[in-house]
Amino acid sequence: MARPAPELLRYLRTLRRFWAASLAAELEYQANFVLELLAVSANLAGSLFTLSLFYGHGHDLGGWSWDAALVVLGLYTLLDGLTTTLLQPNLSTIVTHVRTGTLDFVLLKPIDSQFWLSARTFSPWGLPGLAAGAVLVVVAAVRAGARPDALHLVAAALLLVASALILYSLWFVLAATSIWFVKVWNATEVLRSALVAGRYPVSAYPAGLRLFFTVVLPVAFLTTVPAEAILGRASPLWVVSSLLVAAVALLISRWFWGFALRFYTSASS
């Protein structure tokens, strides 16, 4: 019983050091804050404008009301903020590590390498996006007349975690392929551009794309499913499958990293 606790403490202490160090490094570039704020506002304005093109003429997107669709957009902004804060800065360093050979140092540390590579840096510049997304979700949900009960709130929280984990796993698996293809960075650009589809409820797409965004690239689980829960209309089937997809995605990312490492350590020179 005594063993896991110090281990956990060591990881927490490491995480705190990681983030303190990266915060110190990032704060040297204060101008970034203004730039990020501008980027988040402009992106939000653009998304709202695009959405208004659909709703402007009395149409809707896949049966979602304007306010309900805004919840989806808010969740997308939230996840985008998460990407800027954690996923992108960390996973882009995997590529650098592989290219410069400094992955060796990470592998020789007595700490889980996936943990190190996924949590090493923290960019405060994604925080405006996170905040804007959260505000939009709450405001839009209230305006949409959502009265989620406690159960739905718990489901929504779970689904948010699940969607963050799915997103993380997608990124991590792609970044891990840099062990083979050193110039893989573009692959994450592909992912980012395909995930733009998550700005809109998945039911707005034609049947073929909807299937694609549910089964192949789980965009549906990233924004639409949690939005349903926030709006108080989650179905147990979707909640369960979302959690399942998250668990499987996480396991796959873990297995894939082990596989990639076996390859790295048997092939690198």
């Binding site: 110090p6 060591r10 202490r13 490491t14 705190r16 050091r17 990681f18 303190a20 160090a21 110190a24 490094a25 040297e28 410069t100 050979g101 400094t102 060796d104 140092f105 540390k109 007595p110 700490i111 190190w116």
Partner: peptide
């Protein structure tokens, strides 16, 4: 030819990270 220290920070920050990692 390779370095483990964080490029943008003083070595002391990297050392603090290492201290945490090695417990």
């Amino acid at each position: 030819q390779k370095q483990q220290l964080i490029w943008d920070l003083p070595p002391l920050d990297s050392l603090r990270v290492n201290a945490a990692v090695y417990g």
